[in-house]
Design a protein around this nucleic acid. Structure first.
Lengths: 352, 352
DNA sequence: ATGGATTACGGGCACGTGCCCGTAAAGGTA
DNA sequence: TACCTTTACGGGCACGTGCCCGTAATCCAT
């Protein structure tokens, strides 16, 4: 069990090029102080023997810590959704720590554009080497991206994407397809004469994500010639009373609703309403593996939850930065997460 | 961005204990040559300052390669299921390579107990430091495990478990629950008067996995007072003609079968039969994300596939060995994989 | 007491890379 | 030519740990 002849180090390159290892090092990190001639020669040798630097030695020798920032929403009373990505980020942190990488997390208030902008400024001021960000507000993110490009700081988007800002990578759901899956599950045992209700509960006016999901949802009905009528409702308050009021009204107007689809994690509020008003025969589908939702899965009020592995998103996002900054390996631009289907029967094994 | 004061190395321990780093090293690797007195003193200091060895430096300094073996079934014409775990193993290999870990894969024929035994012998003879194994044959695995325990080689089971052989870790499905999920999906839109068919297609007499799944499947019917009659059939040949013959007979005897559940990845054979005999109204559920199955998902013949992330199983299995042998961190004994539900609508994002 | 074996420990090089510092060579100016 | 600046490169230490080798100290038998 001895080491195979992997003597392909800087020393070997230096020997072949008749220079010192210091010169090879200068070329490898393209620093100044090397004549064009020797630079070319060394580069040729590097390419020829497909030199792979030893990351162990490199990280050990360099005293510099690589520091990464993660900028995500804080958990609120409304939802602890973002605790999952945070978990993944911590997991990545633990793994990278031993290789000299530090991680710092910045949290902002999803209901405050200002707090988002503030934290962006703090992150940029601190001079991190790479940044993971949830691009919750489009304009601020646009400015942020421009600044990162200027400073050549790689940044990764998670959970939602802004495609035209060329981030290093996007890691998150394909929302349109995810709405499509929701429609499939919703109609799987739905009678033809029943109506379908789409519910969007959200304070924010910023409806980009929601529109994608609804679009996919409706596409399924088109593609499969589903005859059911679709009713939709927007609710701009998130408290139970307001939601209940709106829903009471809708169900009053439409006596024959057979299934409801909630476009985000607030499905538990709807579940609560259905349970209280004894309408649990209505099929209910929504998003995200948060505790309130799982409770209603368990109680047979919610039929399915659609999830996008938020934990993994955090983990992979950080790892994408690690790959570029430490390993210097390429990462894929778009990394769509699986569209997981969670039920009462399989949730106990679900790994976020 | 400077390194925090992490001067907690062997040198610091040595300084505090008034010994040399070599002596500290002997204690750390509990080698001989240290008096009980100094050993105790050093151990106290190590514990007190919660010393964490620098893996980078450790792997760099030690010339020894850590070598891991993976022993899994070969892909056959019957099924390419095992190409997924192999993928995960390769992925882990690439990641560990830079840290001085080598991986060697051994394949055996699922239809030949002898080839399994042969490969076990080869693996044991080569003296690996850790072994990943799919314990396909019980008796041979028992001997293997005994030998590993004797030689103190950690071993990990994937895909199926033999609980009483205390492997370092089991990574794979909870088969019983997985059958339970299958039953849920199968009955979700099934009419009460319809019968349900359980199909087991397998040459091997070794039915351990199958029994677990069927047990879970039936448990769902009990727990939920499902009135449907359950018909079961064992088919000991795997070729299409034999399967079709058996199924023709069963469908002849039972005119009102509304759904079929196949306990393994050969569901595509049944799908083929249903399609050819124009019985695609029968709901069909089976196992594993292999291409033939996905084709029938796409064609609306198979309704759902249940999967257990075989790729991840391979990856995590290798990583469990890495964790114990390199990082010296504890791993969980049982690691049940999520029970994933794959449909025509979400399969394109499924990540094995 | 003497010699030999055993035990307990320290010195110091090596792993492969990063990078500081020193210096010879080349170029520029008076 | 003398002096200074810039360019191009080499020497060599450091990172934290593994481990070989050498040796003083201790023990035991004669």
């Amino acid at each position: 069990m001895e080491k195979e002849n992997e003597l392909f180090g800087v020393k070997e390159i230096a020997r072949r090029a008749n220079v010192s290892t210091a010169t090879v090092d200068r070329v490898l990190h393209n620093r100044t102080g090397v004549s064009e001639k020797t630079k070319a020669k060394i580069n040729a040798i590097i390419k020829e023997m497909d030199y792979q630097p030893n990351i162990l030695a490199s990280r050990l020798a360099s005293r510099k810590i690589i520091s990464l920032a993660a900028l995500i929403p804080d958990v609120s009373e409304e939802t602890d959704f973002w605790s999952a990505p945070l978990n993944g980020i911590r997991r990545a942190e633990a793994e990278m720590k031993q290789y000299g990488v530090q991680v710092q997390v910045f949290l902002f208030d999803l209901n405050s554009k200002d707090s988002f902008a503030d934290q962006i400024r703090r992150v940029l001021d601190a001079g991190f080497h790479g940044i993971l960000i949830s691009p919750s507000f489009i304009e601020e993110t646009r400015k942020f991206a421009a600044e990162c490009v200027r400073r050549k700081i790689p940044y990764v988007f998670i959970d939602s994407d802004i495609p035209d800002l060329h981030s290093l990578s996007y890691i998150g759901p394909h929302l349109r397809k995810s709405g499509y899956v929701g429609a499939k599950l919703l109609t799987y045992r739905l009678e033809q004469e029943r109506k379908v209700l789409i519910i969007n509960i959200s304070k924010e006016i910023d409806n980009y994500n929601y529109l994608e999901i609804e679009d996919g949802f409706r596409a399924y009905f088109n593609d499969n010639n589903q005859p059911n009528e679709i009713v939709r409702i927007d609710i701009r308050e998130t408290d139970y009373q307001s939601v209940a009021r709106h829903l009471t009204y809708v169900f009053h107007l439409n006596k024959d609703i057979g299934a409801a689809f909630v476009t985000n994690s607030r499905v538990h509020t709807v579940a609560s309403f259905l349970k209280n008003s004894r309408r649990t025969h209505v099929s209910l589908i929504g998003y995200d593996f948060v505790r309130e939702n799982v409770d209603y899965l368990e109680a047979n009020v919610i039929d399915f939850l659609i999830c996008h592995r938020p934990d993994d998103q955090g983990y992979r996002g950080m790892m994408a930065l690690y790959q570029t900054l430490v390993v210097n390996a390429p990462v894929t631009r778009q990394n769509y997460m699986p569209i997981d289907i969670v039920t009462k029967e399989n949730y106990e094994f679900y790994q976020n």
